[in-house]
């Protein structure tokens, strides 16, 4: 029982940490990558336009990551509460 509880704690921590890294790192990476691609790469937009599109893409990626986290929290936690209440 104790080992199982510890295991689930670790798995929850892993999931939360993964999603936090997604939410923090992906928008920053998306911003600079898309800015580089839009201004220097195939599209060759002006500085202001590429900045604005890059910001939009970063915000979009951010909300997709947030939505994934909320979905995960909503589906996962409702499943994990059942065994907990059963054990009690």
């Amino acid at each position: 029982m104790m080992v199982q509880k510890e295991q689930s704690e670790l798995s929850i921590f892993k999931v939360v940490l993964m999603h936090c890294i997604y939410i923090i790192a992906f928008p920053v990476i998306a911003f600079f990558l898309s800015k580089f691609l839009l201004s220097n790469g195939i599209f060759g937009l002006s500085a202001v336009a590429s900045n604005v599109y890059a910001a939009g893409i970063a915000i979009l990626v951010l909300h997709v990551a947030l939505g994934a986290f909320i979905y995960k929290a909503y589906t996962d936690s409702s499943g994990s509460t059942k065994p907990q209440s059963k054990a009690d």
Partner: peptide, 11 residues
């Protein structure tokens, strides 16, 4: 057991 759901305001 509700910590996962409760982290959402922090995020």
């Amino acid at each position: 057991e509700l910590i996962m759901k409760s982290i959402i305001p922090v995020v």
